[in-house]
Amino acid sequence: MMRDALVIGVQTVLLIVIAPAIVGYVRLMKARLQGRRGAAVVQPYRELRKTFRKGMVIADSASWIFHLAPFVIVGATVAAASLAPVISAAQPADLLGDLFVLAALLMLGTFFLALGGLDPGTAFGGMGSSREMTVAALTEPTIAIAVLTLALTTGSTSLGAIAGTVLKTPAYAIGPGHALAFAAFLIALIAETGRLPVDNPSTHLELTMIHEAMILEYSGPYLALIEWAAAVRLTLLLTLAANLFLPWGMATSLAPVALVAALLAIVVKLAILGLLLALLETRVAKLRLFRVPELLALSFTLALLAAASSFFTK
């Protein structure tokens, strides 16, 4: 019992701690690909420290929801992160919840983020909330079908069980079902974390913002919490992409050697996925908002194909 809690705790803390570094890494890679020098990987930590220490300006039209939202976002994101298998395939967090629970916890965070955007009553906050919720709602079916595809081949919707089964039967991972589901999941990931081409994380124009528009009114520690939660969300989803679809390298026992190897494996996998993300973000331009549903429809079709092919190969 104690050991289970420890395994969950260590993995969760690991995800939370490395999250800003992943964001910094993606930014650095993007800068290099664009021919800039870019800031160091640790830059997001510096930014968080700076923001955390600043005073706050609260809009006079805001209510207690505005104060509550950052903490609910952090709570929901951390709870979601605690479910993810990061280094150990034997995942005691399966006792807490499965992929549907994880998706719903992320939705809880999005829900309060959107409320926080609406609360001060500015046009931009409302605009961001409306867009964010639209994108989040349209992403849900893709995620559900991707989960179904994983469950059809591995017989479970629990994260640790999926990773463990794929690890035992590598043929699953290269089957058409998983491959298509992986592609669909990546598109969903981009939409869920507000990356290009759905949303531009480094935009400065309010009218094109989605995520940034919602948090315009936040400053100081609240902003730091929200930014950090967003980084955890990105890292969490990248970790899921890495460990559910390509679980190789994960520790099957709690031996120190296996754990260190698994830690290295996940860092390498995250580095590759982060590089892919940076590559994508330098290659594509932001889509018009009303073209985003087409992208999501594509990912949904991919997921549906994945599920169908799982039926045929069963």
Binding site: R53, K54, G55, M56, V57, I58, A59, D60, S61, A62, P120, G121, T122, A123, F124, E206, L216, E217, G220, P221
Partner: peptide, 12 residues
């Protein structure tokens, strides 16, 4: 020890 100010919302 940080100040929390209440001010108008940013409306461009």
């Amino acid at each position: 020890h940080r100040p929390v100010r209440v001010g108008a919302a940013w409306n461009c």
